[in-house]
Design a protein around this nucleic acid. Structure first.
Lengths: 265, 265
DNA sequence: TCAACTCAGAATGTATACATTTCTGCACAT
DNA sequence: ATGTGCAGAAATGTATACATTCTGAGTTGA
């Protein structure tokens, strides 16, 4: 791949990182490096299947191999890298089928989160967030059409809605698994920008119904509504992939992280 | 009953099986140490919330801190340990509620795996394993009652059945997530020993029906049957917990891994 | 008596040297 | 031309020394 000069965004951070700002939160080098490498992978700075060499990364990022190794192991457990003993780490190349499957899994998990939320109820704070997201979405959609920046805004609204429900589910493992799914497939708050106005309107209507079900403690309805809500995102994704002809899972290296980002942008 | 020492049957075996064919153990110290510490945690050798100190572990296991650190990080990402920067790792103490929730999540994931298996079909090898598990179970149940060793045998049969379906789902992420659920809650092939004869008979009948649905490519039926199949295990677990009075999630440290193992043994 | 401070001890974080394995390139033989 | 085998290089695995941070006992002061 071609990362020679400007590999990771801003490698001069090594200095600013040392002086950090006042709130001395003791973030270790390992954690910082993990974030930076993760960003680089998600930005598509590495080709799919490309090996990440420890010495090279340590020189680029200005730290020793120790925090690099820790970061690579963490990213492998997040599913972003593949690991083989004595051979090291490589950027995982996702097949189109894997991305679609991840949406299926996420649909099940989000549905379960909605059911839990309905069973367990929302805190006042969570209720405020959800109702704010619904109101903001209503206002945005009242314009009758969406500009690109509006779609970005709705992406944030969408994320807030779902995040509040994950929180209300009161289940740490569920949240972690949904995050895993999102690391494979672009999260809905990022690919929402690909949808037409009517698609967004429909999704927002889903949000209203889901919240109604949760408020009514109708856990069954909340679950099936959320499942269809997320599954429909998957369907849209499949449709857009087919339209662009990038849906052929033939070549082994097809469907990189960058490809995914591009496909839904 | 105490959980037998040794690593739990897991999907990691797929990797080692593909690489070291009996002779050269190219498994690194990090991987071996990870297995040993995992077994110790699952055996209840550590109290919930107990800190795992690197130097102590390195002296006990006879390796340096480096592979220890790697193992602890891996176990934390598996959900068995909690981590705090500059403070290290501690055995995660599971609440009763978390264990029950894990069964809910697993029910959804296994149901999805059954649906995928129905949609995608089984290989000849997978079909042989499933049919063997069904036949072996039939033979075992024909006796009309079960001794303790029979229950252990059925545990293995049960594991083989489910494992073949996970394999047939053709979805790596799904397999990983089911493994995560099993690391929190004892897997059905281990706690099956707690059930009465009629319970086992019912579960085995479920297996027959699930396989029928998969063979018939009836993905919807396979899904709902599997979901109820796993969810019923959760119900049995809750019942047995209540019976033993260990279901109070009051004290913060209640519900250790060891407690869980004991509760279903 | 209690609060806060000091400072040693210990634990974790990082860097680096060394060990082992894997990859690569070339010579050589078939 | 292709396959084999053997160094040499390079990459990963491990051990260890050093740096930084946390913890807690003891002391001091109000």
């Amino acid at each position: 791949m071609v990362i020679a000069a400007g590999p990771v965004p801003s490698m001069e951070d090594a200095q600013s990182a040392s002086q950090d700002d006042g709130v001395g939160q003791s973030r270790t080098r390992s954690l910082s490096v993990t974030d930076r490498i993760r960003s680089a992978i998600l930005s598509g700075d590495f080709a799919p299947g490309e090996r990440l060499r420890e010495v090279q990364l340590s020189e680029t990022l200005g730290v020793s191999r120790t925090p690099i190794r820790s970061a690579l192991q963490a990213l492998a457990s997040e599913g972003l890298l593949d690991y083989a003993p004595n051979r090291g780490y490589a950027v995982r190349s996702f097949q189109t089928a894997e991305i679609v499957d991840a949406y299926e899994i996420r649909a099940m998990m989000e549905a379960l989160a909605a059911r839990f939320a309905a069973e367990r109820g929302l805190t006042d704070a969570e209720r405020r967030v959800v109702e704010g997201a619904l109101a903001d979405g209503d206002a945005l959609l009242a314009k009758g059409s969406l500009q690109d920046e509006d779609r970005v805004t709705y992406g944030a609204i969408n994320f807030a809605f779902h995040d509040a429900i994950h929180s209300a589910a009161r289940c740490r493992m569920l949240g972690e698994m949904i995050r895993l799914c999102q690391s494979v497939a672009p999260s809905s708050h990022r690919n929402i920008v690909a949808f037409e106005f009517e698609d967004v309107r429909r999704r927002h209507d889903d949000h209203h119904r889901i919240y109604d079900a949760i408020l009514a403690r109708d856990s069954y309805r909340a679950e099936i509504l959320m499942r269809e809500h997320v599954a429909s995102v998957r369907s849209s994704l499949v449709r857009s992939m087919l339209k662009r002809g990038s849906g052929s899972p033939a070549s082994g290296a097809a469907g990189t992280v960058a490809d995914r980002a591009r496909a839904v942008s």
